[in-house]
Design a protein around this nucleic acid. Sequence first.
DNA 1: TCCCGGCTTTGCAACGTTGCAAAGATTAGT
DNA 2: ACTAATCTTTGCAACGTTGCAAAGCCGGGA
Lengths: 356, 356
Amino acid sequence: MTPTLRDVARLAGVSVRTVSNVVNDYPHVRPTTRTRVLSAIDELGYRPNLSARGLRVGRTGVVGLAVPELAQNYFAELADAIIRAAETHNLGVVVEQTSGNRDREIEVLSGGRPIRLTDGIVFSPERLGQEDRDLLDVPFPLVLLGERIFGGPTDHVTMHNVSSAKAAVEHLLDIGRRRIALIGAHPDRREAVRAADLRLRGYRAALEAAGMAADPDLIRVAAPWHRENGAEAMRELLDAGIAFDSVFALNDTLALGALRVLGEAGRQVPDDVAVIGFDNLDESQFSVPSLSSVDPGRQEIAETAVNLLIERINETADARQSPRLIKPEFTIVARESTGFSSHVGDHASADGVTTA
Amino acid sequence: MTPTLRDVARLAGVSVRTVSNVVNDYPHVRPTTRTRVLSAIDELGYRPNLSARGLRVGRTGVVGLAVPELAQNYFAELADAIIRAAETHNLGVVVEQTSGNRDREIEVLSGGRPIRLTDGIVFSPERLGQEDRDLLDVPFPLVLLGERIFGGPTDHVTMHNVSSAKAAVEHLLDIGRRRIALIGAHPDRREAVRAADLRLRGYRAALEAAGMAADPDLIRVAAPWHRENGAEAMRELLDAGIAFDSVFALNDTLALGALRVLGEAGRQVPDDVAVIGFDNLDESQFSVPSLSSVDPGRQEIAETAVNLLIERINETADARQSPRLIKPEFTIVARESTGFSSHVGDHASADGVTTA
DNA sequence: TCCCGGCTTTGCAACGTTGCAAAGATTAGT
DNA sequence: ACTAATCTTTGCAACGTTGCAAAGCCGGGA
């Protein structure tokens, strides 16, 4: 069977506790002893039993990440970033997919499933809304991502949706565009989709600040934010014969769909139509033309979320901080689709970049 | 603090063991007792401590998945599928990214990191090769994915690379194409990249079976298999002025890059150039035109891998089966890029489909 | 009424690890 | 050489759970 501390101790001729001390880098171990123990560990191929350690210490060293689904590019990249961030703290990540299913999202909060083996959870809901705020009051460390719920009892990492969307539109204004279409508005006014609403608000704010009125014809619905819906919205816009010289897509996936249709229709990007997206997916760097985008600071969001979670995990019950809302700085990444050149493989710093 | 079995037992007025019986659905519990215990559990919000259970039972209920990185579409979709498959067995999945780093891949096999909290691992290496076969002889259940190593001591789920590539090329032949370019050959003949070699072999086999010679000019190098390299290879092919009426890209990502460049160059797909890829990414269904592809059976690969892993986990040390090599059936999915129509949102069955 | 067999419930021990606190060993200072 | 201070090592208990096996309970048949 798998060797235990006891086996190592017997082989090295020391007590179990000493082996444990060596394993945990306890400083007061005589070098010769340490060596002897280490070689016994090596000989037996001993590995600590993390369940036992977890039981004893009260920590598993694993955190949960609950996202809608990895098949969506944005969440795959988010998960990638979270896993990297967790790893620097020697934490593992159990990934749970909620599949855009409200019940499953609720189940995550009820601590169901293997999530329970974790020390805490980073949760990006897609179906819960403001009205579910109370559900977030859970008995384990939880960090919330996204813009579905605000003002909850947990730490929350989100983005500057309004001001970054405003900056994206200003970027289009800066390069002289005046007929700026928006793709990705939510079809149902009753259902609040915060990201859509917030970014739309930024769009309006930018136009207003420029002394321009928003033309309702230029605001196009697309939901969910998938490639085909971006394509569809662009087709409709073209078919409608409405004049426009640029597009702000509420996310990159929509933008990529739109880009494709523009290509088919023979519209030159950026000369005829400039395009900017939102999210700065890895893929956007490699599209043709490369896609300008709002970089909401994914890596920073991930690192922040993990750091907040770790703080909460280490927090003692009596000295509990109040919930924090954090929005990393965003960046406008200007690429070919808005007339800036960038070469694939260039460092980000080589792109035209504007910081918040 | 978090309530334990003991707390529940006290509240319900039964023994700890009885509560445990209820929690584990032990059948011989009197209904009235069960009810009483359940309501105590409910009242206290009791959740089993999985570390303790894991220690006692010797299983954590979590498996590991080690892939290069989720930011690569293919692996994100694979992870998605694996997580879904694991979930049907009530298993959680810890995702570990090796970042295409050989040392990290070796570390996975040494059982380092939080992977150790798992009952077994599904591993898709990217840097290990045939020469590392012995490393796979690890003291925990391991299922191998991919085509980097064959003949190792573990169960292995891979795909029909040669025959499915052959079928892809035959699909192009079937629609009357004769000048079939291949994109994605590996640049270095010394380094064996099995997937590339195997698919190239299928390409040659199809041509040979059709009584045609492979034109070296049509075999284009592209590595790694990223979008930009597919685009680059296609640009070179066009610039070289070599005649071709179709392209077999060794994966979808390459194909999507190539598709883009064809569009820019004004070549009509599929009329001027038909294109087929490999992997059948979700995205390929939504590109414009939609991309024909080889579906290697991702969901089945995932389910098979998880099932094999579970079998190994449950296997007793004495009755150990010999390693199994499994290759799910593949499918040729014919879409617009080879002249078949498919409407986004259609069921797979609506696509033109050929089964292995 | 007594006994048998199945249904319910239970106490004990152990899974492998680390916190605690004390014992033993060593070194420096006087 | 003796004491104090420090360095090393140790045994014990406990983390929360479940396997084991036995005990208590019940109803039915003889």
